[in-house]
Design a protein around this nucleic acid. Structure first.
Lengths: 199, 199
DNA sequence: GTCTATATCCAGATAGAC
DNA sequence: GTCTATCTGGATATAGAC
């Protein structure tokens, strides 16, 4: 009996994962309001009603995705900060990884797109707004700290650190958005271009 | 009678302009699907039904705005190109003007935001997609040409010109999107930061 | 030209059979 | 757990009075 419960739970989790994967793509490319539950259902090869067996509402799915996106990005940011690398090396690694993620068509790109689209829109659930306002600052702060450190030892340019961090992230988001429409045609720019703002 | 007709036409045009102004702000901040006709109506201080006296549908308004946005931006791009300035001066002027427009809360910023949001979303009318695919490339091409010219005379850095133009515009759009959520708190970065990618 | 009232449609969410 | 059928609400768009 305990075994069955465990197995059922696992199946349930997989189902939820499946829904999330397809919802991510749809929300990121069409937005929350324009994505219908039936879109998510048919993308996930299940009936429209079945979605409600796993999630209470469309907004629930959206909020879970937003939370997950920030968790991943924030975890990656903190991980980057703790690597045994010099500030310029950290910035270079971050840019290379992010740009590579965009060209490789990884979910990463979709997460950035989702966040970009979500932060840009006022038409999102209050809970999503709360998540954004709570978790959106961490990546900016991490990059700001790395830049400050590099400026202290003279290895990074002396622009205002917060402004540089802002440009860092908004450039990535801008590229993610551009990629959304140009899918196969999209070619990420040479990381050296963006790097030249920092070093 | 001719006079009356003229006057009526003028009033009608003003009404339409009024609707467009408010629709621009709403579409740019909430997106097409999440913006209700009643939102536009109440923002424009008129009844919901009256909108249909001026426009056939919500999508019509959207398409007209998108077209107008591209016309303005494309005209500004071509104008920039024809100014009697050196390539680095043109790039500098463009960045300064664009960033200034963002901080000054001008409609310009909303136009960029609208375009960024619209190009990012698949959930827009087919006619809007057509307009985008036809008119979106001009600003990229103008910037590419300016960069090439600057590279020939050695006044601009030798990165791939198209990649540079891509970063130019996606950075601006990324900042426009960021500004959308941070309204009053938003402070545009020093143009020199972005400029350091070019010269 | 402008409003109010309403027809129509469509999407979110629920109920209940299997 | 999954489906089909249905309820319900809300938004687009229209009709008709003033």
């Amino acid at each position: 009996m305990g075994r069955n419960k465990e197995l059922n739970q696992k199946i349930k989790d997989e189902r939820k994962e499946q829904i999330l994967t397809h919802a991510l793509r749809l929300f990121a490319t069409k937005g929350l309001a324009a994505t219908k539950i039936s879109d998510i259902a048919s993308a996930s090869s299940m009936s429209q009603g079945l979605i409600y067996h796993y999630y209470r509402s469309k907004e629930d799915i959206f909020v879970e995705l937003i939370s997950g996106a920030f968790e991943k990005i924030n975890a990656a940011s903190l991980e980057l900060e703790r690597l045994p690398l010099s500030p310029p090396e950290k910035i270079r690694l971050a840019l290379e990884t992010l740009l590579q993620g965009l060209t490789d068509n990884e979910d990463t790109g979709l997460y950035y797109l989702l966040i970009a689209v979500a932060t840009a829109s006022e038409a999102i659930p209050d809970e999503a707004k709360k998540v954004i306002s709570e978790k959106n600052t961490a990546p900016y702060e991490v990059v700001t700290r790395i830049i400050r450190e590099g400026q202290r030892d003279g290895s990074l340019k002396n622009f205002d650190a917060e402004a540089l961090a802002l440009v860092f992230w908004t450039s990535i988001k801008g590229l993610a958005i551009h990629k959304a429409t140009h899918r196969e045609k999209f070619k990420a720019p040479d990381p050296e271009i963006l790097l030249s703002m920092f070093m």
